[in-house]
Design a protein around this nucleic acid. Structure first.
Lengths: 234, 234
DNA sequence: GCGGCTATTGTTAGCGA
DNA sequence: ATCGCTAACAATAGCCG
């Protein structure tokens, strides 16, 4: 006969806590991390279950920002500011919902965006030129890719890539970054511009307020989920 | 002796559901309402427990907007947009954390803007093409660029290589990498490939900010929370 | 639409590595 | 800071008003 002995509890298990400021720093950080991802998960589920657009922004006391958004944070924020529902812009998965859902509005919205974009292009010409120059330079270290940066290639479509491919893509990106970083270091040293430890000043080259569009590659059109989650670290 | 009889179950209780688009309209609406308030409550708890600033925006498929924010939505959004850390101004509970975060906020703001711009380069290539095509169609005339776009012309001066430009692209590259990493993380979370509590592969974040508050409550029992919640139809 | 009701699933506090 | 574990707690699916 097998004797079953009650094993001593390995943990106390969850305990109820009051909803008040956590004083213990470590505890607070752990809780922040767990609950934050919990909220993001909930947000993702809500967007999938109900076809809702969701945007979540969280600032930690340490000053870090975390955000989640479906289809992506910027789109949701922009829609909030403009008062235009994201669904009117691109999402069309809800065909069963409201078939005659103001197609005109959709058209108008896209049209407006197209016009805006076109106008932006003019101002962007200068920047593109700079990009071309950069390409020439970077190709020296990265290896020629023809007329464009390889990451600008249309064939690079995140939606189609499976996880492994994305991982590879990631590593490649990191690799390129390192190479460029190395190249930059060389240039700076040669120029005597190098300032140890100093963060590079960002030229106020790009200042445009580009209207977020649903064509975003990180959005979710491809799969059943969309949504982007990211934080910005220094 | 008291005889306990098992009463017939009054309800089936909760049932597990798949996280996929709810087809039943009524069901979807109910779920949307319940889960939405659930998220708001979670957000409120997070802000109280961890002193975090949280902003949540939700669009229903019907086009209604609901939001919650601590201290309030606008503040959080403004913070996000500007990259300014309110915590540096008002709340100082985190003084032990990161004394030198204010100057970074300024840097981050410009950095973010620059990054956003580059992030869209890939998409823009396609858009530029379309824009040019549109122009041709609409105007019926075009200043011939041959097979290439004017901005691809070799005559573009390559001699001037500004270090700042290199730095800019370097940072942009890094960000692209982060974005991809974030996307991968998202896919993994939704696929269940990643543990629920897992954090993004990216050293997530930074943008500084912080500043508590809150006004109403959704889960705000006892007026312990502040935070603002409101929705408005479109 | 909202709120109440369970039975059940899902989340997470506390601990350790 | 993240990860796994586990028991306890909290959210909620499906119903009924």
């Amino acid at each position: 006969m097998v004797i079953l002995r009650k094993l001593p509890k390995r943990t106390q298990g969850r305990k109820r806590i009051e909803i008040k400021k956590l004083e213990n720093l470590n505890n607070k950080q752990v809780t922040f991390s767990k609950r934050r991802s919990g909220i993001f998960k909930k947000a993702a589920e809500l967007s999938v279950l109900c076809g809702a657009e969701v945007g979540v922004i969280v600032f930690s006391t340490a000053g870090k920002v975390f955000c989640y958004g479906h289809p992506n944070v910027e789109t949701v924020l922009e829609c909030y500011r403009s008062g235009v529902a994201p669904s009117a812009v691109s999402d069309d998965t809800a065909g069963d919902q409201n078939p005659n859902r103001v197609p005109m509005a959709v058209f108008n919205k896209e049209y407006m965006e197209a016009i805006k974009e076109l106008e932006e292009q003019k101002r962007r010409v200068v920047e593109v030129k700079e990009a071309v120059r950069m390409k020439k330079m970077v190709m020296g270290v990265v290896g020629g890719c023809g007329e464009r940066f390889w990451w600008e290639d249309e064939s690079v479509d995140l939606d189609v890539l499976d996880v492994q491919e994305v991982e590879h893509y990631l590593m490649s990106l990191e690799d390129v970054r390192k190479k460029v970083a190395a190249r930059l270091h060389e240039v700076r040293i040669l120029n005597g511009t190098l300032a140890p430890g100093a963060l590079p000043p960002v030229p106020a080259v790009h200042r445009l307020c580009h209207m977020p569009m649903m064509t975003n590659g990180f959005g979710a059109q491809g799969g059943q989920f969309g949504g982007g989650y990211h934080g910005f670290g220094v």
